[in-house]
Amino acid sequence: MTLQNLDTPARRARGLPAPPLRAFLSRYSLVIAFLVLWQASGKLGWISPAVLPPLDAILGALWTGIASGALVDDIAISLQRAGLAFGAAVGLGIPLGLLMGQLRPVERALDPILQLFRQTSALALYPVFILLLGLGETSKIFVIFWATLFPTLLATVGGVKQVDRKLIEMAESYGAGRVQVFRRVVLPASVPAIFVGLRLSATTALLLLIAAEMIGANKGIGFQVMNAQYNFQIPLMFAAILLMAALGLAANAVLVLLQRRLCRWSLD
């Protein structure tokens, strides 16, 4: 037991949250330390600022990029690519997953081919997609869609299949038919598992976005990372990387918020 939580039981008993400042510090102190170390190492000359620019230079580059509108275009096109791919993956993955989880024959027929596709790296297939779909937007969105589909699809199938048989039988004993069992038991019971898949898919979409934009793009955050490095605009490169991290965090935060609203029953 640390000194810090010696006085917390009483607070917890009264249902009070920890004071905001302390809660913030206990959660983010390592992040803050990391950022301070980063800033200091550049300023104190531990690492050459040409390789690792101090934070203020990076934030400066970020600000200039956004204020001048140059980075705004990149953000917009990247969001569009990742968003379209993610939307398509979710739009196909959830219904298909529900179907596969419910109907054994559908799952048996589709499972081998999906396993084969899943085990093949999407990046390895990117050249194939380029050959088939050209070097434009379609192949980029498709490769992101491809990699993003599987986490949501497989999590949905898993969620449906692990629904408690006893709950289904309970519903049937009250006379629920297939549709009612699905709507009132299977679907709500699968929601937490589906969200696990959605969060994985969102992460995957951003990972693939960068990779796709590094090959044969002339716009986008991923392109900026490569381009800035090529032109020795190292602060700008880090600014683009920072932007990516922020996008990932924001996407995750939105999904967590949505999950809290939809699955209040499963959370504390």
Partner: peptide, 26 residues
């Protein structure tokens, strides 16, 4: 109507909603 050894409540429904479940299904 059947009552089992485990209550078999739907975790995403409140107490009232669980009790209403059989009626709504019907």
């Amino acid at each position: 109507a059947v009552i089992y050894q485990e209550p078999r409540l739907l975790p995403w429904l409140t107490v009232l909603e669980n009790v209403a479940f059989g009626l709504e299904v019907r």
